[in-house]
Design a protein around this nucleic acid. Structure first.
Length: 252
DNA sequence: ATGGCGTCCGAGGGACGA
């Protein structure tokens, strides 16, 4: 069994206790963190006994990490052409290519500079993924894309907003067209599966969420998935991240 | 219509997130 968790922690240093709790509770083989918001030298390596951390970090913003129980090799710590923002780290283990991403948010306006940056990043991401062997691949992370209106608590309110635009959703499709399946939506046809709730306005309590944190696996590997769940308990802890961890179990 | 909350950096409040 291979157990992988993906979690946008919104600062790994502010969430050390919660990360420990997640590791103890679920005992994953691999934990993918996004928005670690810390340089590599200040990463709390020593706080997660039994796990080795592979980092791609920067000051204040972004940052991704693989926290690994098993040994693995780091393949790539940057998306080519977008090295200034640390949003991509790929490793290999047991014949699997495991990719952890933090897709740019895209700002608050369709057509704005941050939105354009996001689309460019997604284009480069598709090229990078296509350059690997995609037959035994798992990609997880914060994609900042809600693939369909089912993944949005109030689609009318979110109409024409960043995270749900046609262009972003077209990139989601383009990623899947490389030969990957949306794990959550394949297993759970009806659940919303929200993974993010705004800190503001009691959004979690009111179930005002989005499904933007995803797992993709190679089409030929989808039958190996035992389960995928959103760990809302961790979202209910004191001082939570605004994202919940998502966990997948699959047969090796 | 706007801000609403949380984190970082660094010493006050702006940048950023989604």
């Amino acid at each position: 069994m291979l157990k992988v968790i993906s979690w946008n922690v919104n600062s790994v240093r502010a969430r050390v206790d919660s990360v420990e709790h997640v590791l103890k509770t679920h005992q994953p083989d691999f934990l993918a963190l996004q928005e670690t918001k810390v340089t590599d030298d200040l990463f709390p390596y020593d706080q997660f006994p039994g796990y080795t951390c592979h980092i791609s970090g920067q000051p204040s913003y972004n940052g991704v990490a693989w926290v690994c129980k098993n040994s693995c090799d780091v393949i790539c710590r940057n998306l080519p052409g977008f090295e200034e923002q640390k949003r991509f780290i790929a490793i290999e283990s047991n014949g699997w290519t495991l990719i952890n991403v933090y897709v740019p948010n895209g700002g608050d306006a369709i057509g704005g500079d941050k939105y354009t940056y996001k689309l460019g990043w997604l284009e480069a991401f598709c090229d990078q993924i296509s350059s690997y062997d995609t037959s035994k691949m798992l990609i997880c992370g914060d994609f900042n894309i809600a693939p369909t209106d089912q993944d949005v608590y109030d689609p009318l309110k979110w109409n024409n907003c960043v995270l749900v635009s046609d262009e972003e959703r077209a990139y989601w499709q383009k990623i899947k067209d490389i030969g990957l399946s949306d794990v959550f939506r394949t297993i759970h046809k009806d659940q919303p599966g929200f993974t993010w709730w705004d800190y503001r306005g009691f959004a979690y309590r009111r179930k005002h969420g989005l499904r933007i944190d995803h797992f993709l696996v190679s089409n030929d590997m989808i039958d190996r998935v035992e389960e995928i769940t959103v760990d809302e308990e961790t979202r209910r802890l004191d001082r939570p991240s605004d994202h919940a961890p998502v966990q997948v179990s699959l047969k090796l």
